[in-house]
Design a protein around this nucleic acid. Structure first.
Length: 1228
RNA sequence: GCGCGCGUAGCUCAGUUGGUUAGAGCGCUACCCUGAUAAGGUAGAGGUCCCAAGUUCGAAUCUUGGCGCGCGCACCA
């Protein structure tokens, strides 16, 4: 049990003397003590310089060292006389050492401008380069930058990726690895061409060619760098350390040649082939798209959906009254109809409208007949039922006679020699389903992959050369050819309406409706719908490598894990050959030269390879261009149109020339080749490539699943899979980031303006605020709602709190002369061991408990953060860090205030107060370590802290940047787990005490006589420890006395609960009975038995005995009703709610003090302004209370005089103090 | 349609191999502090852990089936 010291006021009063006063005036001349310890300064006036953040001197703030006794006067006892003198450290400039070692810190940090100056300093000092230099030769941490395209503006999503991409390399560098970060730019492809077209006000390929490919390419190359400035600004502003000066660029000659090498390898292995396929075709752009690109452009749209009658023909080829009904959502494909497909084993019905004598009979699949009737709002009767197989072979009239001559069906000879109609005939196909439509599928082989397979199958049935050929009424530009006059020259989708109208006029349109579905559009020109279209295209045989790619995928560490088996795995499972070629202009030219005579082809691996060919001609095309425009980039010589001009002698046919195919390639191949192409490998950079493949770490958003993640894996697997490399997969760990959403939770969209530009966020809150929001706000793979409010709120929670602690430290260190630079000659890296060499440094075991606790927490967190970061869990690590900063701010600093305010100095000189110095060393070490722990997360703020605490203090002897230090991994020797646990108990007790007060409506201002605590588990030996910390608890809870309760049974009941996690596996089904038995047993006896014997037997209802050991049970404590108690898992806290007159009086006085303070604040008084007070009250009780505590009251409020009665010229406030009326007069 | 993910406090989100009283921040209410001060702190209220069934001694957590949302896919003719 410990007695609480009386609460002593902490404020000082001036030493101005007043003359003798009237009866009712009390003259206060005593300096009221603020500390229990010795006077702060030995000599009056030695109180330090100006508060550095305030910068003003306070007149009359000298310390009073002599005690002035009050004259006994008035009806009440005089105040004063109790306690000792002390002062507050209100600083005075004249008596401070002139050289404060830490720069003063602004209490209101301006993070944006702070960051700007740090970014500039990094640049000037080359800190990034230095961070690499100090790790040269160390184990590498390989990072690949997925190239963004500089051709568009950076948006918030890029801020996230750049933050994550910065975090891990910074962390690993601090951990001792060597991590070069090479930037890269994706520069080819449609996006660029689209931009240039917009600029020129043109759209189609014809217009580009009319403009001229050569100037067009020049514009593309310039356009690539349009937003370079913005990208560079963003990169520096967000603190993304990457080497932009050495960036790889996909259009550079060396990069292109690496890609050529890769393609040549594939060609030589037979993995690159030209095929005639139905592809997704961007008609306006005149090129095919790969599945990755198509996937980017799906939109939900409503298309016309038509049910069309195909009249069946009889054996003589004459129309009958029966019609097949086919369904399609692409009416524009009907003119190119070639077959109708049914499922052979499906039942079809012939239906006729009830009561309509001349109606046509419709043939549909039976399960869909009712649905069709409903759509038509007609009643049908079934005339006939037949299997699909009976329909097969029947001829019909296509909806348009585009390709069909009038008259009976034309026939050709089958392979068997029998004639059969070539087209417009019912065929059987397995893919026909009854999910939608009519069960009869309109087949237009030009516009669908399965349709095309039908044609191929049909062709195979006929004698060679006899079968159906592909019919197609659509030109590559997406318009109908003249063969379909109605739509000639118009874009096919624009003709849908006319087609329906025409069908209706001829009685062939059975039904029409809108059909809502997802349909692909061009990913760069999103108003251009794609169409399926037959094209010659170059493909990579990726589908042959499905198993290898899956095996490589299995070895990638995906975060989140489900990407591996889920989205990415599924994508690989359904892999199709990569449609590689693009019939465009600005891209890596496909390095295949074809013999103009024999058609045989070969691939070229480099420009030099090409120049070495026999009879090379055409290189002068570029030379001439260069001559007339010396500024022309040499890289363009491997681009269209220059490369197309280069020809050479064919090795396949004498006298023939080899000419390059016209296509360029999919720019995703460029990005996927990045692991080697960034070095120009294999033509150059062998050492770099060998050292930096595969990547340890990459990270991009989930939309790269079939983009960069796939292109890298596919290329790596195909090229290196059999080469015996340990990792054919190009990256070991990949963090897949979630999508970023706008303020409203919807997709971010420029037009909706539902997000703030990054620049705006940087200017308002700073890059660290944004980084912390990303890193500590949520798991990185959840979709992040990018809201200004959330970013703003993330600032006070962590950054500001850390800053406040830092600023607190600096303010007081300056006052007390704590100067590590003068105490420590060789700071090293300012690790614990380095600090131990300092003068005045005491070993941790010799310091106070709070210090030992702080360093325990610090090192425990450092070690936890390290293991989390090693496992790429920055979110968990950030939470640890946040909790640590909270512990520093809300426990260490709060509980250490006494020491910081104590008398004595912290400069290692004769006046040094050792406990105070301990507090400084502890907080100093803690802040330095936190700066290092936080450095990868918030590189600017931690740098600012480091540069002051370590840089300024040691004038360059310590590492100049926090990023040039090692990451603290935690010193186990400094972690006292018991202490950490027990301190948590104290904090619990304090918190429970407040809760108990709150429940009883006993505000903390009201002093209470006693608080008792009952620890939940009496077996723990924390009780004595806790009792030894009574002062602390009393102080926190404003009570006079604290004890660990000796008679817990008065207040609480104990219950012994099974530790389910331990007993569950042991007892299984018996668990509920054991639990019941435990509940019924006498807890005290049981606990006693466990404590002595270590085990107890618990008889179970219905027979049997469970043996319970000490660690199998937990104790729960419940407060009995009637007490002011609060219970938590670890303790119950009971407060004495009885109030004695003395306590009430003290409480009332504190209320009055509070009222006066509020008034002071309302009057805008400086905190050092002296006041005169007058009290008027009818309450004898209140007056008595005030009189009793007049000294402390005056001290707290800096009153030089207190009068009972009005005073002239003062501010007046009428109040009710706990039911007692009071008028307060206050005069400055 | 298929696949993946998500659904927890008014809002934004945590919740580690299933375990006893489900957490944080913001907002709200009350309070404290006024020597970090246009800051800071404490406490409280607030929950059908989307619904249902199942597995289990025990489910926010595992399984199945719904519902809702997001994303992805494509033989949506």
């Amino acid at each position: 049990m410990a007695k609480r010291q009386p609460t002593l006021p902490r404020r000082v009063v001036a030493d101005e003397s007043k003359g003798p006063l009237e009866n009712s005036i009390f003259f206060i001349a005593t300096t009221i003590l603020s500390r229990r310890n010795l006077p702060r300064r030995a000599v009056a006036g030695v109180s330090g310089g100006p508060s550095p953040d305030r910068g003003r001197t306070v007149e009359g703030d000298r310390h009073v060292d002599e005690r002035i006794d009050l004259p006994p006067a008035g009806p009440t006892a005089p105040c004063g006389g109790r306690g000792r003198r002390g002062t507050i450290p209100v600083p005075n400039p004249s008596d401070r050492p002139p050289l404060p070692m830490f720069e003063p810190v602004r209490g209101q940090p301006d993070f944006p401008s702070l960051e700007a100056s740090i970014a500039a300093w990094w640049r000037e000092q080359g800190i990034y380069q230095k961070s690499l230099d100090r790790r040269r030769g160390a184990k590498r941490f390989v990072f690949f930058e997925g190239p963004p395209t500089a051709n568009g503006l950076p948006h918030p999503g890029h801020c996230l990726t750049r933050t994550i991409k910065d975090l891990y390399p910074r962390y690993r560098t601090m951990r001792g690895q060597y991590c070069e970060r090479k930037a890269g730019w994706d520069t080819h492809g449609l996006p660029v061409e689209v931009e240039v077209c917009k600029e020129l006000g043109i759209h189609s390929k014809a217009e580009i060619e009319a403009y001229g490919i050569e100037p067009f390419i020049h514009r593309c190359q310039e356009s690539v760098w349009r937003y370079m400035k913005e990208w560079e600004t963003l990169t520096e502003r967000i603190g993304f350390w990457i080497d932009l000066s050495e960036a790889y660029v996909t259009y550079h000659q060396s990069y292109v040649e690496s890609v050529w090498w890769a393609l040549a390898e594939l060609f030589d292995k037979g993995l690159l082939y030209q095929g005639h396929k139905i592809v997704w075709w961007w008609a306006q752009g005149g090129t095919a798209l790969s599945s990755g690109e198509v996937g980017q452009g799906y939109k939900e749209v409503a298309d016309p959906s038509v049910y069309v009658a195909f009249p069946l023909l009889d054996d003589q080829g004459r129309p009958t009254s029966r019609s097949l009904v086919a369904w399609t959502t692409t009416p524009w494909t009907l003119p190119s109809n070639q077959f109708a497909a049914v499922k052979a084993d499906l039942t079809y019905v012939v239906v006729r409208e009830v009561g309509a004598a001349d109606a046509t009979d419709y043939v549909v699949a039976e399960p869909l007949a009712a649905g069709l009737a409903e759509k038509l709002k007609k009643e049908f009767e079934i005339v006939e039922r037949l299997p699909g197989s009976e329909l097969v072979g029947r001829s019909y009239l296509p909806p348009f006679d585009t390709f069909r001559p009038a008259g009976p069906p034309a026939t050709a000879l089958l392979a068997s020699g029998r004639p059969e109609p070539v087209a417009w005939r019912v065929v059987a196909a397995d893919f026909v389903t009854t999910d939608s439509g009519t069960g009869i599928v309109h087949i237009a082989p030009a516009f669908g992959e399965v349709d095309y397979t039908v044609l191929v199958a049909e062709q195979a049935r006929f004698a060679p050369g006899e079968g159906p050929s592909l019919i197609n009424a659509v030109a590559p530009d997406g318009s109908f050819t003249d063969i379909f006059g109605m739509g000639s020259g118009r874009f096919v989708k624009d003709c849908d309406r006319d087609i329906s109208r025409d069908l209706r006029s001829r009685g062939l349109l059975v039904h029409q409706e809108q059909y809502v579905h997802d349909y692909p559009f061009c990913w760069r020109a999103d108003s251009d719908p794609l169409i399926q279209y037959p094209r010659q295209s170059w493909f990579i045989r990726t589908s042959q490598f499905r198993e290898e790619m899956l095996a490589n995928n299995a070895r990638i560490d995906w975060l989140p894990e489900h990407i591996k088996e889920g989205r990415f795995g599924n994508f690989l499972e359904t892999n199709v050959d990569w449609a590689l070629s693009r019939e465009r202009y600005w891209g890596t030219p496909l390095p295949i030269w074809v013999c103009e005579q024999s058609g045989r082809a070969e691939a070229v691996r480099s420009y030099a390879d090409l120049l070495a060919k026999p009879g090379v001609q055409g290189t002068d095309r570029f030379a001439r261009a260069k001559a007339s425009n010396p500024g022309l980039s040499d890289d363009l010589k491997v681009h269209k149109p220059y490369i197309d001009a280069v020809t050479y002698d064919s090795p396949f046919a004498p006298g023939a020339r080899m000419r390059r195919v016209t296509e360029v390639i999919d720019c995703w191949f460029d990005s996927g080749a990045m692991p080697f192409a960034q070095w120009g490998w294999p033509h150059s950079g062998a050492a770099d490539f060998e050292a930096q493949f595969p990547a340890d770490f990459i990270s991009e958003a989930i939309d790269q699943t079939r983009g960069w993640f796939y292109s890298q894996l596919a290329i790596s697997t195909l090229l290196f899979g059999s080469a015996g490399r340990p990792y054919p997969h190009p990256f070991k760990t990949c963090i897949v980031l979630g999508h970023m959403l706008g303020e409203d939770g919807q997709k971010m969209s420029k037009s909706k303006r539902n997000y703030r530009e990054p620049a705006e966020i940087f200017d308002r809150y700073g890059a660290d605020a944004l980084r912390w929001f990303f890193l500590a706000g949520q798991a990185p793979w959840t979709s992040i709602r990018y809201s200004e409010r959330a970013i703003k709120e993330s600032v006070p929670e962590f950054l500001l709190r850390l800053w406040n602690v830092y600023s607190f430290f600096v303010i007081y260190a300056r006052i007390d002369g704590f100067d590590p630079g003068s105490l420590l000659a060789e700071p090293g890296m300012l690790d614990h061991a380095d600090l131990a060499l300092a003068r005045g440094w005491r070993a941790v075991e010799d310091r106070g408990e709070l210090d030992r606790w702080m360093l325990s927490e610090l090192n425990a967190v450092a070690s936890a953060m390290t293991s989390k970061m090693d496992a790429y869990d920055h979110f968990g690590a950030a939470q640890q860090l946040s909790t640590l900063v909270d512990a520093v701010s809300n426990w260490f600093v709060r509980r250490s205030r006494d020491r910081f305010w104590a008398s004595g100095r912290a400069d290692g000189g004769p006046e040094t107060n050792a406990e105070k110095l301990d507090a400084y060393w502890t907080l100093y070490e803690t802040l330095l370590t936190i700066a290092r722990l936080a450095a990868p997360f918030v590189p600017f703020t931690s740098e600012a802290i480091w540069r002051n605490l370590a840089g300024a203090a040691f004038s360059g002897r310590a590492p100049e940047s926090v990023h040039l230090t090692d990451y603290p991994s935690g010193n186990v020797a400094l972690v006292d787990r018991d202490l950490v646990r027990r301190m948590a108990v104290v904090r619990d007790v304090a918190s429970l005490g407040r809760a108990a007060r709150s429940a009883e409506k006993l505000k903390v201002r009201q002093p209470l006589s006693k608080v008792e605590v009952i620890l939940a588990d009496p077996r723990a030996d924390d009780a004595a420890w806790l009792e030894a910390h009574a002062d602390l608890v009393c102080d926190e809870l404003n009570v006079k006395q604290f004890e660990v309760c000796g008679e817990p049974d008065r207040y609480i009941t104990r219950a012994v609960l099974p530790d389910l996690k331990k007993l569950g596996p042991k007892l299984g089904k018996d668990l509920p009975r054991a639990r019941d038995a435990l509940a019924r047993m006498d807890a005290t006896a049981l606990l006693h038995a466990l404590a002595t014997a270590g085990r107890a037997e618990v008889p179970l209802a219905g027979g049997g005995i469970a043996v319970v050991e000490n660690e199998d049970v937990l104790v729960r404590t419940t407060a009995k009703p009637g007490w002011a108690a609060a219970e938590g898992p670890r303790a119950v806290v009971v407060i004495a709610k009885e109030l004695t007159p003395e306590l009430i009086a003290e409480g009332l006085v504190r209320e009055v003090v509070h009222a006066v303070q509020t008034q002071r604040k309302a009057l805008d008084l400086e905190f050092t302004d002296r006041i005169e007070l007058g009290f008027e009250t009818d309450s004898a009780l209140l007056r008595a209370a005030l009189e009793t505590h007049l000294d402390s009251l005056a001290g707290e409020t800096l009153a030089t005089s207190v009068t009972f009665g009005p005073i002239a010229g003062g501010a007046i406030e009428a109040l009710d103090i706990e039911g007692h009326p009071l008028r307060i007069h206050l005069r400055k």
